[in-house]
Design a protein around this nucleic acid. Structure first.
Length: 271
DNA sequence: CCCGATTCCTGTAGGC
DNA sequence: TGCCTACAGGAATCGG
């Protein structure tokens, strides 16, 4: 699924392709995504020029002269650059055609993605206004995590995956980062020391940076390529490796369900 | 406020 | 070989 690295790769590809271009036509084949695509989407977009393509959390923000299109790729969404008459595949839900015969095609089998329109600052949109800091930004600090976690009884893994705490840390990266920092995924968030949170911040950033680097080589230009997710190629320490040996202590890696999600961990290294 | 459970959806993997 | 079921996951929302 598109993780932060895939979304960022998509953003870079889109920015290069559509900045400064005028939107000529919008075709919605299936409006039932995570939220219904607004009926007026075409009215909002057609005739407008793309000013910039930004990212906030896993949201793509396409700024035009009169507002912003907010796109989430959900679990299975992708945006590809195709020829205007390219054959339509199953689950090709939306086309956005721009100058120079550029056609952006939104494809999403599971329809967990979404498209919203806002005519004011996207940061004020209800989906974005209460999001936590970017994990690779200056506000994601040990002090911040420590402060937010006091008196919280929630498992530290769920805490880390809460987008109101910090954005962009999905199930895979949460398992990996907790392993790197030697923290048990089930430990209460409020019972983790400042020093441990410092280690965790470092681990999250290291994990994401490595994934972005892998995404950068595997995905190159997600918009014009096949949109193959890149995280498969990256080095995973524990995720999906139940029964295999821990690379530090050779204990057997375990899997258990925490907050309705599979969590992989080393029972010896993580306390 | 806090937290766990439920929900959306379909492709894929595993079992028999 | 083929059918059937379980599972995966982001994030809003519901219920206690």
């Amino acid at each position: 699924m598109p993780e932060l690295p895939e979304v960022e790769t998509t953003r870079r590809g889109l920015a290069k392709l559509v900045t400064g271009k005028k939107i000529r036509r919008v075709l919605v084949r299936e409006r039932r995504l995570r939220w219904p695509i607004p009926d007026e989407l075409s009215q909002y977009l057609v005739g407008r020029t793309v000013r910039a393509v930004r990212r906030r959390a896993k949201y793509l923000l396409i700024d035009t002269s009169n507002g912003t299109l907010i796109i989430h790729l959900g679990m299975s969404g992708s945006i590809r650059h195709v020829a205007p008459n390219a054959p339509v595949r199953k689950h090709d839900h939306v086309d956005i055609e721009l100058d120079d015969e550029i056609c952006l095609r939104y494809h999403d089998p599971r329809r967990f993605g979404s498209m919203h329109w806002t005519s004011v600052s996207a940061d004020e949109h209800f989906l974005l206004c209460s999001l936590g800091p970017e994990p690779l930004g200056p506000d994601f600090t040990p002090d911040y995590l420590y402060g937010r976690s006091r008196n919280r009884k929630i498992a530290v893994k769920n805490f880390l995956m809460d987008a109101h705490v910090v954005v962009g840390v999905g199930n895979i990266y949460a398992s990996e980062a907790l392993y790197l920092s030697g923290l048990s995924p089930v430990r209460a968030a409020g019972q983790v020391s400042l020093a441990r949170y410092a280690k965790l911040v470092d681990s999250v950033q290291q994990t994401l940076r490595r994934a972005i680097k892998a995404g950068g080589t595997t995905l190159r230009d997600f918009v014009s390529g096949d949109g193959q997710p890149g995280y498969f190629g990256q080095q995973l320490f524990v995720y999906g490796k139940a029964g295999e040996r821990c690379s530090k202590c050779a204990s057997e890696i375990r899997v258990r369900t925490i907050g309705q999600r599979s969590s992989y961990y080393c029972p010896v290294c993580q306390r």
